[in-house]
Design a protein around this nucleic acid. Structure first.
Length: 309
DNA sequence: GACTGACCTG
DNA sequence: CAGGTCAGTC
């Protein structure tokens, strides 16, 4: 990947259902998405049997444990898989719900009868239906070490959060290379993308909140706004993406955060926030500030190393 | 028509 | 964080 072409800024920067919206604000240079979907995994029918979920009747068998150190997840067999508490899954909540298996019966008016299999697929979210069909996993992948993960683990989430310190808008291709131990399919990709979307949401909410607070506190110039490792905003962010505080947040992140904060501050001061799409301009600026994620993150076991140094 | 991301909700 | 909606792109 290297410095290919810095973030093709896939950012439509949507405008909400505002009214006038004649504010143009066209996607300008940003309009250009990155359609890359390099699909070596075009789901060539493959087999749908074993790939489809767990043979066990238990609920949280979704994905193997967080066996970070390549420790074969096989160790679980003996355990009483019936008791959740033994799984330590609780702490991080990352409970990958086996969506496809759970039919929200009669959720919507359309199909009351709701035939067993079919129904769900058609309904709303397209991706869901696709979740099951993985491609023939015989795909030999370059991942090094332990077994390919069927799903995302709490460690993957933790890793994603740390990556956020470098990139706020990772491309799906980038994610594929940084999570090489994961078998990608539409679901996984969507989930990872979703994670970052959630990360950004939190990030921007904090920024806006802090900016408004500063204004209320009488701050009048962005010069007075700086993000240090001991300010409230930083603490909130660190608590969110690096809860255990066992990772050294890169300096660059502080800079980007400060730029973001000032961006919000100026916009609000200028009264831009009356425009429903006022944040769009800010997003456009921030999405260009992504840094290269360190190579080490490409290692499936990077957490151990990262958190030890 | 499929896909993407912001936004909202729980 | 996941689910869903909606607007916007191609």
């Amino acid at each position: 990947m290297a410095s290919s072409t810095d973030q093709t800024e896939a950012l439509p920067l949507v405008v909400r259902k505002n009214s006038s919206d004649q504010s143009a604000s066209g996607p300008a240079a940003g309009g250009h998405h990155q359609p890359l979907h390099q699909s070596p995994l075009s789901a060539t029918t493959g087999f749908t049997t074993s790939t489809f979920r767990h043979p066990f009747p238990l609920p949280l068998m979704a994905y193997p444990f967080q066996s970070p150190l390549g420790a074969p997840s096989g160790s679980f067999s003996g355990k009483d898989r019936a008791s959740p508490e033994s799984l330590d899954l609780t702490r991080d909540t990352t409970s990958l719900r086996t969506k496809m298996s759970s039919h929200h019966l009669s959720h919507h008016p359309c199909s009351p009868a709701h035939p067993p299999s079919t129904a769900e697929g058609l309904s709303l979210s397209l991706i869901k239906s696709e979740c099951g069909d993985l491609q023939d996993m015989s795909e030999i992948s370059p991942y090094s070490g332990s077994a390919m993960q069927e799903g995302l683990s709490p460690n993957h989430l933790k890793k994603a959060k740390l990556m956020f310190f470098y990139t706020r808008y990772p491309s799906s291709n980038m994610l594929k290379t940084y999570f090489s131990d994961v078998k990608f399919n539409r679901c996984i990709t969507s989930q990872l993308i979703k994670w970052f979307s959630n990360f950004r949401e939190f990030y921007y909410i904090q920024m806006e909140k802090y900016a408004r607070q500063a204004i209320n506190d009488g701050v009048t110039s962005t010069e007075e706004l700086s993000i240090t490792r001991d300010c409230e905003l930083y603490r909130a962010l660190n608590m969110h993406y690096n809860k255990a505080n066992d990772f050294e947040v890169p300096e660059r992140f502080l800079e980007v955060a400060q730029i973001t904060l000032r961006e919000f501050f100026n916009a609000i001061i200028a009264g831009k926030d009356v425009d429903p799409s006022w944040k769009k301009a800010i997003y456009k600026v921030i999405c260009k500030l992504d840094s290269e994620v360190p190579e080490i993150f490409k290692s499936p076991n990077c957490l151990q190393e990262l958190l030890h140094e």
